[in-house]
Simulated scan of single mutants.
Amino acid sequence: MKARKKPVEVEARQLTKENLTEVRKWCGGTFAIEDVTDEVSQEYLTIKTIEGIMAADFGDYIIKGVNGEFYPCKPDIFHKTYDIVEEVEE
């Protein structure tokens, strides 16, 4: 069997350092900093999803699903899966 995903509009925001606070509030996420090495720290947003806690890096898209759930999506997958319907001002 083959199936096609139904066309459903979702809300999405691309996570940047400039909009971190707004996106964090929007999705109920938490900002985290992890020491990768003694010299490098990784900054990211943690999001409680239906599949557990997930990390979103800067540049990732945060998507609000059809049931109000949030999850991160890498930019390449986002652009292969979604077409921009309307730009929304933050």
Rank of each mutant, 00 (worst) to 15 (best):
T81K: 08
D38V: 04
G28Y: 03
V88Q: 04
K6H: 08
R4W: 00
A55E: 09
V40N: 10
K17R: 12
A55K: 15
V85H: 00
G59Q: 14
M1S: 11
D35H: 15
I53T: 15
W26L: 03
I84T: 00
D35L: 08
G29D: 02
P75N: 10
I53Q: 07
D83P: 08
K17V: 07
R24H: 07
K25A: 09
E22G: 07
T49R: 06
D76C: 03
E69S: 02
W26A: 06
G52N: 12
E18N: 15
I63D: 11
I47M: 04
E9K: 00
G28S: 04
V40M: 09
P72F: 01
Y71P: 09
E22K: 13
H79P: 08
I50T: 06
D35I: 06
K74E: 15
T16N: 01
K17M: 04
A55V: 09
I33Y: 04
I77T: 14
I77W: 01
K6Y: 01
E39D: 14
D57F: 09
G68E: 10
C27G: 12
E69Y: 08
A32S: 09
S41A: 01
E90Y: 01
D83G: 02
E22F: 03
L45K: 02
D83H: 02
A56F: 14
V85D: 05
R13S: 09
H79R: 07
I53E: 07
A12P: 07
Y44H: 14
E87L: 04
V23H: 12
G28K: 07
E43C: 03
I47S: 04
V8T: 12
G29Q: 01
